[in-house]
């Protein structure tokens, strides 16, 4: 959308006023800011028409001509084996501190070139297009900087729509996971988080394009499951050594499992340490086959490139049905 001069609404401000006696300007009702930050209807907005058209071209650059062709390939001088040593220090020592997942995205994709969609809406999940070895990929990533990366209704819908878009146009999906869970609270439950969260689950489960997942830190409970896990037919699921794949974080888990010891903080701390030792790592999941490999952060690009190359000719057909029944 073009800022300050484009509007979209089903009924305009005049009708709104007559019918509901609500006074609202066209800008507030359906301007570029409204649709990119509040409603999520528009993906991007720009200063003027020229910028908007230039960016539309940039978007089309990533897409195939139609849903039957493969996404376009473009030359790059960026080598697949590029090592990024600085990723080894991306995860802070303290598990409760945030970091910017975009740094990981920029350092993994070709030339650091990433077109983010809906950057100002549901910022706790990042979606957008990039290229790996010259070929388009869709990127989905939790953003620990916003709401600790929790999935809420808006984030689930934003992610689900993007995943289905990629699937429709044969674009492989790379997912970066650092998710402490679904967002708790009445507003989320009343809003139907079960229904909307399932959209993301459904989208990942149904999609047949190559799916690569990299777990960087937290992958807890249902939210782990939703984020392109092995259980949803993830093709290559990788984890950093800092990954914690569990039902919930050590503190929360211990408080529930050892509820009768709650009065003894020392005992509880010991239990927490024990839990952390046992489960706050990627190896338990690895033992069960939910993780294909534990990789060093600096080798992430190399491993993602290799996995995508391996899956280049992936061919998967879902069982015949009239149409799938995504929880709308």
């Amino acid at each position: 959308m073009v800022e300050d001069s484009s509007y979209m609404f089903v009924t305009g401000p005049d009708v709104v006023k007559t019918v509901t006696h609500e006074e609202v300007s066209a800008e507030d009702l359906g301007g570029a800011i409204t649709h990119t930050t509040r409603s999520g209807v528009a993906d991007l907005s720009f200063e003027n028409d020229v910028h908007t058209l230039l960016m539309t071209r940039r978007l089309f650059n990533f897409l195939p001509l139609n849903n039957r062709s493969m996404p376009p390939l473009r030359e790059t001088s960026d080598i697949p084996g590029r090592i990024e040593m600085s990723l080894d220090t991306l995860i802070p020592d303290n598990p409760n501190l945030p970091y910017d997942i975009k740094e990981l995205i920029h350092k993994v994709v070709d030339e650091g070139d990433f077109l983010e969609l809906q950057p100002d809406y549901a910022k706790n999940i990042i979606t957008g297009f990039a290229r790996i070895e010259g070929s388009t990929v869709g990127i989905v990533a939790n953003q620990p900087m916003v709401l600790a990366g929790c999935l809420d209704i808006n984030a689930s819908i934003k992610g689900a729509r993007f995943v289905r878009f990629c699937d429709a146009f044969n674009i492989p999906i790379v997912t970066f996971v650092d998710v402490p869970g679904f967002m708790p609270g009445t507003s989320q439950e009343y809003g139907g988080i079960i229904l909307h969260g399932a959209k993301l689950l459904f989208a990942y489960a149904e999609c047949t394009v190559p799916k690569i997942t990299v777990i960087t830190r937290k992958a807890y409970g249902g939210a782990y499951d939703v984020m392109s896990s092995k259980h949803l037919r993830g093709d290559v699921n990788l984890a950093w050594p800092s990954a914690e794949i569990a039902v919930m974080g050590p503190k929360g888990a211990v408080e529930i499992i050892f509820r009768e010891e709650a009065k003894d903080p020392e005992q509880l701390a010991r239990r927490e340490a024990e839990y952390r030792e046992k489960f706050a790592n990627p190896f338990v999941a690895g033992r069960r086959g939910f993780i294909d490999d534990v990789i060093l952060p600096h080798a992430t690009r190399m491993r993602v490139c290799r996995s995508l190359a391996m899956l280049k000719d992936k061919s998967l057909k879902n069982p015949w049905k009239k149409h799938a029944n995504i929880p709308l």
Binding site: N61, L65, S69, M70, P71, P72, L73, R74, E75
Partner: peptide
């Protein structure tokens, strides 16, 4: 020039 080398052109 590089952009001109992209595949999938009509």
């Amino acid at each position: 020039l590089r952009g001109g080398t992209i595949t999938g052109q009509v």
